[in-house]
Amino acid sequence: MNEHLIRIKKLVIALVSIIMMIYGCGSLVMTQMIFQLFYRRGSPELQSKFNITKKAFISLLICILNFVSPSSIRISTDNATLAKGTFRKVNGKIISQLNRRSIIIANHQIYTDWVFLWWLTSTADLAGNIFIMLKKSLESIPILGYGMRNFKFIFLSRKWAQDKIILHNSLGVIDANSRGVGPLSGARPWRVDDDGEMYWDVNKTDDSKSWPYCLLLFPEGTNLSATTRRKSASFAEKVGRQPFNHVLLPHSTGLRSSLKLLRASVEVVYDVTIGYSGVGRNDYGEMIYRLPNIFVRGQTPKLVDMHIRAFKLSEIPVDDEEEFSQWLYEVWKEKDNLMENYYRDGTFTSDPELDQIVVGGFNIDPKPILMACLLPPALTLSLALVGYLAYAWLT
């Protein structure tokens, strides 16, 4: 009997999660459509409203994950590169003072890594200003694809000839907007090449019209698995590198290109190392926390560990390709050592002199999702009421 009840409970949780996801995403897209009726396309007012729906989307995902199985977050920060108090706990909620123009890089273990990192930006009220690179095919997903295009996410085909222009223009716009001289300020690029690449004046700024941003990148390109580990080892042999034990060999092209395109505005690169409870030294997180396991079986990590350190742009050899590749390799080597500590001790650090530790819930402000998801039905009911009153008055 107990087994039947457990199965029924899991089935109910899965069905409710699917309903929440479908209704939430549908409502967010409808909200975006409503905003487009009242605000001019490309206007800062419309983008501001779209950013609210971006916040609401991550709120939706976090609400679903907490409904399936609540998690806690433990953040440790490197005292040598991040000031004490960058992360702190207020009324049970973790808040932070992350930089307003930054790049986050991280190791990639499970498909929902980006959800936890997106949550990280919410601690500094930057959830509406995050940008993610996704596969081009995801742009065609019904409803979600439309919404993500309005989020200004960057869709890449992994064909450099095509992606180079998309990346150049997308990051160029992000950079120009962050300096208050982009399309959202009414400005235009000072030059457009024959191939469509746009160039913005890197010497101009207008802080009164600036927009913050946080670009999220996974230099490994994919999550850790038995197959990707073998491919990474082959790639390491090809380029004369020593493969790692707990992370994949990073690729430098995407990150270096992003840093070069954002160098007029980017202030810091946050390096995040992620570890999940329930994943052992010889396990693969993507097998344990697969999407069906999360949403159907309610199997999520009870504790998510993040170790964060920061690099100033001046500390990164962006202009030299070989030096940059070596720098990134050393960063990942240290990340591999951190993962070794994590699997041995269950934590990234235990020395308060070196690091600060903050533990809190995996939660987020629910107001954006409530507003975005309640607006369509509220507007529909209002229009229906107006229509009824008009009909009653006329007849």
Rank of each mutant, 00 (worst) to 15 (best):
H246E: 08
H251N: 04
S185C: 03
D206C: 14
R241F: 07
R179S: 04
D194A: 15
F244W: 06
E197G: 13
L255R: 06
A236I: 08
V268H: 00
N177C: 05
T227E: 14
R191E: 05
R191H: 15
S178G: 06
G240A: 11
W190A: 01
P250I: 01
H246W: 10
P250V: 02
Y270N: 11
P189G: 01
A264E: 13
T228W: 08
R191N: 15
D175T: 06
L224I: 03
D201G: 09
A264I: 08
V272F: 13
T253H: 05
A236F: 07
K209H: 09
S252T: 10
R188C: 02
S232N: 11
T253G: 05
S178E: 01
W211I: 14
D201C: 05
A264W: 04
R230A: 15
V181C: 12
N223T: 05
P243M: 05
T222M: 06
V268E: 10
A176S: 09
V268R: 08
S234F: 09
L249F: 08
L224V: 11
T205H: 01
L217A: 01
R188Q: 13
Y213C: 13
N177E: 05
I174L: 12
G182E: 06
L215R: 12
V181I: 14
L262S: 01
N177P: 10
V247P: 12
T227H: 12
A233L: 04
G254Q: 06
V239C: 13
P243Y: 08
Q242C: 10
L217Q: 05
H251L: 11
G180V: 02
S225P: 11
N203F: 06
L255Y: 02
L216Y: 00
Y270E: 04
W211P: 00
S185A: 15
V268W: 01
S178C: 06
D207A: 13
T222I: 11
V272P: 11
L217H: 04
V181N: 06
S208Y: 01
S232L: 07
G180H: 02
A176V: 05
L224W: 05
L184E: 09
T253K: 15
A226L: 09
G186C: 00
A176K: 04
L215D: 09
P212M: 07
S258K: 02
T228V: 08
Y270H: 14
K204R: 10
D194Q: 15
V269A: 02
V268L: 01
K238N: 03
K204E: 14
V239T: 15
D206R: 12
R241Y: 14
L259R: 00
P250F: 00
E267M: 04
D201L: 14
A264H: 13
S210P: 03
S225L: 09
V202G: 01
K231Q: 15
T227D: 14
T273K: 05
C214K: 00
S257C: 04
R230V: 13
T205N: 02
P189T: 13
N203Y: 07
E237I: 07
L262I: 07
L215N: 11
D195I: 07
I174F: 00
V269F: 12
T228N: 14
